[in-house]
Computed example of a mutant assay.
Amino acid sequence: MDSEALRQKLEQLTGKRAGIKQLGRQHSASLFGVGTEEQEQPVTHDGYLWVPLYENEGRITAVWVEMEGLTGLELQLVNYAARNYAIALKATGLKEEGEVEARQLSGWLNSQLEQEKNDAEIPDDMTLKGRLFGDMVPFLLVSENVHNPQLTYRSLMKLLRNYFENDILLIPLQEKEWLILARKELLTGGDDKEDEEESEDELLAQTSMGLHELIASEWVGVFHLAVAPAIIPVKGLTGSVALLRETIVLGRIFQVGEYIHLPWELHMERLINSIPDERRRQLLGQIGDYSSVLADKEMLLTLETFFEMDCNVSETAKKLYIHRNTLLYRLDKIKQETGADVRSFGDAAIVKLAMLLYKVTKRK
C-alpha cells in the first residue's frame, strides 16, 4: 500500500478528510519533539490527529485526519493503520528522502490519467505541491527490461543527482515507468538569457541524449526516454505526462531502433495513429503498393534517412556512409518499382505517408 492508498483508506474509514504532509524542521520539533522518545507518538493539534510516519534530517512526514466527530475507537483505528504503514516503510526501505511523497503524487497522477483528466490541478493535500510552482522540464523514462532487476528509487535518484546539478523530483508511475522533473535552469545553466545559437528543442534533445547515455551505461537493457517542453507542474503535469506516454507509444511504433522520442518530431505520426485501423488500410491501398520497397530494410533505412535529412542527397549519403552515386542508384530503384520520385516534394510526401501507414498497419 502506498501513501495515497493509506490516505484514501483513512477517509473511507472515518468519513473525514485526511492527508499526508512533510513538516519543516521547526514545525516537526514543536509538534513531535524530534530527537526525543515522544517523536514517534501521535499528537492532536488544532482539531487534527497527527501520526508520524518517518523522519529525515529533522523533517517529519506525518498523516493527519480531522478529529471532529470521531469516536475513540475510530481514533485508535486511524493510529493503528498509520503506525502499521510506518512500520512497513521501515521494513521495505521506503524511507529514502522524498519517496513517500513521490508515491503519494504518483497515486493521484495515475488516478487522474485513468479518468483522462489531463487538465487537473494538483490538490493542496499533495505534500510535493509546494515544489511544483516553478518552470520544470518533464522526462518520462520507460524500461523494457523484463528479466533484469527492477530499478529502485534510491539507485535511480542517486544517478540523476549526479547528472542534474539543479533540484529534481523523481516520481515512480507504473512498473518500470519513471517521471523525472528537472528545473528549467538545466537548459541555460542558470543564465536568464536565451541561448542565441540553440533553440529550446535542441537543448532538450541534447539533454535527453546525455541522460539516456548515462542510464544505458549504468544498467543493461532497453530504455525509452521522452521529454516535453517546460511546464508549471502544479497545473500542467497531467497533460504533460499524457503527452509523454503517447510519445513513447508512437516512438515504439514509428521509430524502431531509436530510444529517445521527441513529441515535436511526431506530429504526422500522431495524426496517422489517430486514424481507425480499417481506414488506414484503405488509405494504404488507395495510395499504391509500396510493400516491395518498404519491406526491404536497406531501402526503408534509406528513405527514413533521406526524409530525416530534408531530402538532401549529399547529407543523406554522409549519414548513411555511402557514396552519393550509391544513394542516387537506390532512389532511382525506388522510382522504378513505385513510380514515385522522392526527390520531388509531391512524391516525397506520398511516400512518407505510405511509409508511416505501412509501419502502423504492419504492426497490427
Rank of each mutant, 00 (worst) to 15 (best):
R324P: 01
I168D: 03
E177M: 01
Q206L: 11
P172D: 01
E278N: 12
E66Y: 06
N118H: 11
K95I: 14
M309G: 09
W50T: 03
I350D: 08
H267V: 09
E315V: 10
Q282P: 08
L160T: 01
E258R: 13
L187A: 07
L141I: 04
E315L: 11
S314R: 11
T152C: 07
E196F: 08
D192V: 15
L327S: 08
T14W: 02
E144I: 03
I350Y: 08
I215A: 00
K362H: 10
Q26E: 13
L53K: 03
Y321L: 14
K90F: 12
V78Q: 07
T61D: 08
Q336D: 13
M67P: 02
R343K: 09
E97C: 13
L284M: 12
P229E: 07
Q255L: 13
Q206D: 13
D135Q: 13
F307C: 05
D347T: 05
R59D: 04
W108P: 01
Q22E: 11
E165R: 12
A102I: 00
M209N: 10
M157G: 03
E213S: 00
K16W: 09
R270F: 07
R280N: 09
F139W: 06
G72W: 04
E55F: 04
Y259E: 00
G15C: 06
Y54D: 07
E185H: 05
Q115W: 11
E11T: 10
Q282S: 14
E144W: 12
G221Q: 00
I60H: 02
T36K: 10
L13R: 10
I232R: 15
D289N: 15
M67V: 11
V249E: 13
T44F: 09
Q112M: 15
V142K: 05
G288P: 06
E68C: 08
K95C: 15
P263R: 02
G58P: 02
P138E: 10
M355A: 11
G288F: 01
Q41P: 04
G285R: 15
S155D: 12
L243C: 06
L303Q: 04
T361Y: 01
E175I: 03
E11A: 05
S217T: 02
V146Y: 11
K21G: 11
S217R: 06
F254W: 01
M67N: 08
K319F: 07
E74M: 12
V293Y: 02
I171H: 00
V342P: 06
L328H: 07
L73F: 09
T207D: 05
E66P: 05
D124Y: 14
P233E: 02
G236R: 03
Q41R: 15
N118G: 05
E4C: 10
A29Q: 14
V234P: 02
K21E: 12
H267K: 12
A317H: 06
L266G: 02
V234S: 10
I253E: 08
L262D: 04
L179A: 02
L173Y: 00
N148A: 14
F164R: 07
D289H: 11
G24M: 03
V100W: 06
K21V: 13
K95P: 02
L283G: 07
D277W: 10
D119H: 11
L243S: 08
D296V: 09
